[in-house]
Design a protein around this nucleic acid. Structure first.
Lengths: 158, 158
DNA sequence: GAATAATATGGGCATATGAGACCATATGCA
DNA sequence: TGCATATGGTCTCATATGCCCATATTATTC
């Protein structure tokens, strides 16, 4: 009995539905990438840097819809292991420019092979077109304006 | 400029797409629930117990598509704060039966109000029907059989 | 009935996630 | 110039996530 068996009942909470799917799929992708020593989050970061070149932490965080502090945490193991460098921005010294090292570029390329396998196996099971549609829906959700409105007696939204 | 502004480019990785959406929505739900002192994961657990009664850690983990160890970790703060009790199973002493305390039931009820607000605001922005369809897709994904097949030379799949 | 396998959980480790307070730097404006 | 404000990151804290290994308990097998 595979670990994924569950009742069909979808549940009412949009957030929980998303998280359950994300947990399941992340476990699969992480498992596929395990032999590379990279987690999917790490690979996602390296892949962005490989495709788009160096960028600031805030830019990376924005692209991955991630808190800036979280991005800072996630970069540390990559820096420690020599996959990236983090340097003070030249034009704006508040910024930190994140760059791939040669080693990082190499590890990203190795990871791509495993990621592709995971991607193919997922889409073989789920359907390539369904997957594409799903990614579109996810992108739409990630781009939604969802601000926690603090209730303020005499208004003036912040 | 809200934090959610991003390019429309959906990206190719199914896992990353899911995680980005999950991060965004979780931040929103967590923000809405903040004044209750409950995270969405915690509320999801309490809600399951409130709706279905006491159950084992493994059952809870299965329902939330979560690793059993993860469920164990997540239960500890709830136990520490007196919202749940964890007792050795009567018929099978390997099991741990998780139950809501009166305090936990009360906190779950408080949380439900805030969760409902988050849910309504999300669906107002995203569309109730679209949300329903999205939850169905997520449930389908969460129920997929995705086993990391270890490559085995003369194969007998495990 | 003892050896063996399977199951449920706990502990330790590492990364993932984000809030809040804080610091450094940059920008706008008087 | 000088202050107020905005922005980018860091540090601390707490929870979230899942792996591996160990332990306890139950089920199987010979």
């Amino acid at each position: 009995m595979p670990a994924s068996r569950k009742e069909a009942e979808p549940g009412r909470c949009n957030n929980t539905a998303l998280r359950k799917a994300a947990r399941h799929v992340t476990r699969f992708y992480d498992g596929c990438m395990a032999e590379s020593g990279l987690r999917t989050t790490q690979y996602a970061i390296l892949n962005l840097l490989a495709d788009r070149g160096p960028m600031t932490m805030a830019a990376l965080a924005g692209l991955l819809v991630m808190d800036r502090a979280t991005m800072g945490h996630n970069l540390r193991p990559l820096e420690r292991d020599g996959l990236i460098t983090i340097e003070v921005g030249r034009s704006d010294r508040r910024e930190r420019e994140v760059s791939l090292t040669d080693f990082g570029r190499q590890r990203e390329a190795e990871g791509k092979t495993l990621w592709l396998k995971a991607q193919r196996r997922f889409e073989q099971a789920f359907g390539a077109e369904d997957a594409k549609a799903m990614r579109r829906v996810m992108a739409r959700i990630a781009a939604m304006e969802l601000d926690v409105q603090s209730v303020r007696p005499f208004g003036r939204e912040v």
